[in-house]
């Protein structure tokens, strides 16, 4: 399988604008509060053509930021996001429509004043994929592909249900014939019954594309069950870093990182009766002030002295599986002496 997307040591910091009052306070000698949020730290990941990579983590772990760097919404502060070998945002501006993104909330991601047909046709016409005259046929075909009646093209988004809107958003992306789709929690804001429909649509599209160009995607979710259903490989993120990366089957059967294990344990399952849930101890630390060393150590049951000072690197633990944990690379007891 050839490589389609390569994320090379990408980081993203968001600087917060400092209010005038705080600037005055700092000038008068009060210590400055932290100003930059480190949303993504040193992430490397490759996605092969035709592959679906799941990106999982708690809210605020940086998975959406990473997705937005891939989709060409944010430029990385450091590192690079390369699509087919070239930066997604050369000079800070995205030019190619080959990477498309599906947003989480279909109630916000469609222009409320544009008929859905126009929404679907706009990108392809602007990029010269179809002529204005040919746009009608493309809209009809694309709407049919996502399971919508082409006659609905003259309606406005508010006349649709959440599931239908998400189909429109998917149609908008597909009409541009993208090589890579970034799906940012595409079903999280939908009813469970609708979630299944949209996921099945997604699986159908993937199968339909498998013979041809191949629908590659980065599937962002906090729902481990959904990710297991759709992904070939899964990356687990914690506080801006990838902590484990493994083929889906391996990850669910033999998780290597304590955080992955904790996440899998905290999923409520059917058939356990009044089972006990195992929430992860503690809270997600603020990305404004992440803990030193391994970011997970304050919540980790296996944390040792080394974890408090040294951040672990993402290294292979088994064929195809990597984890960023000292447990697998030299132990947690002693601080490494350089």
């Amino acid at each position: 399988m050839s490589e389609l997307l390569r994320i090379e040591r990408a980081s993203k910091r968001f600087r917060q604008p400092v209010p005038l009052g705080d600037r005055l306070a700092a000038w008068l000698g009060r210590p400055r509060p932290p100003r930059a949020v480190q949303a993504v730290t040193d992430v490397s990941l490759t996605v092969a053509r035709g592959e679906v990579v799941g990106l999982v983590g708690e809210s605020g772990c940086g998975k959406s930021t990473l997705g937005r760097m891939v989709a060409g919404i944010y430029t990385p502060s450091e590192g690079a996001v390369l699509f087919e070998g070239a930066p997604v945002m050369p000079g800070g501006h995205k030019r190619s429509p080959r990477v498309q993104m599906i947003h989480q909330d279909p109630f916000a991601s469609l222009d409320p004043r544009m008929k859905v047909g126009e929404t679907v046709a706009e990108g392809p016409v602007a990029h010269g994929i179809v002529s204005r005259a040919g746009a009608d046929a493309l809209v009809a075909e694309t709407l049919r592909r996502v399971g919508l009646d082409p006659a609905l093209r003259n309606r406005y988004p508010h006349q649709f249900s959440g599931g239908q809107r998400q189909r429109v958003a998917i149609a908008r992306a597909l009409a541009l014939n993208p090589a890579l789709l970034v799906l940012d929690e595409p079903v999280a804001s939908l009813d469970v019954s609708i979630q299944a429909q949209v996921l099945n649509l997604f699986m159908d599209l993937r199968e339909a594309a498998a013979g041809g160009s191949g629908l590659t995607s980065l599937f962002i979710s906090h729902d481990l069950g959904v990710v297991r259903h759709v992904s070939d490989r899964v990356a687990i993120m914690y506080l801006g870093r990838i902590v484990e990366l493994a083929p889906t089957r391996t990850l669910y059967a033999a998780p290597a990182h304590p955080y992955t294990r904790a996440l899998l344990d905290s999923v409520p399952r059917l058939g356990q009766g009044r089972g006990v849930f195992h929430p992860i101890a503690g809270e997600l630390p603020s990305p404004l002030a992440p803990p030193p060393g391994c970011h997970f150590h304050p919540r980790c049951p296996h944390a040792g002295p080394r974890c408090r000072v040294e951040a672990p690197a993402l290294l292979p633990v088994a064929p195809g599986q990597s984890a960023a944990c000292h447990l697998h690379h030299g132990g947690t007891a002693a601080a490494a002496t350089a």
Partner: peptide, 24 residues
């Protein structure tokens, strides 16, 4: 999000301004 979606399509700034931002 719909402005972000339009920008990441990508559509030109002028188009986003006149076709999406202005009508809304």
């Amino acid at each position: 999000d719909y402005i972000e979606a339009a920008l990441s399509t990508p559509l030109s700034g002028r188009r986003v301004l006149l076709r999406h931002l202005l009508p809304n």
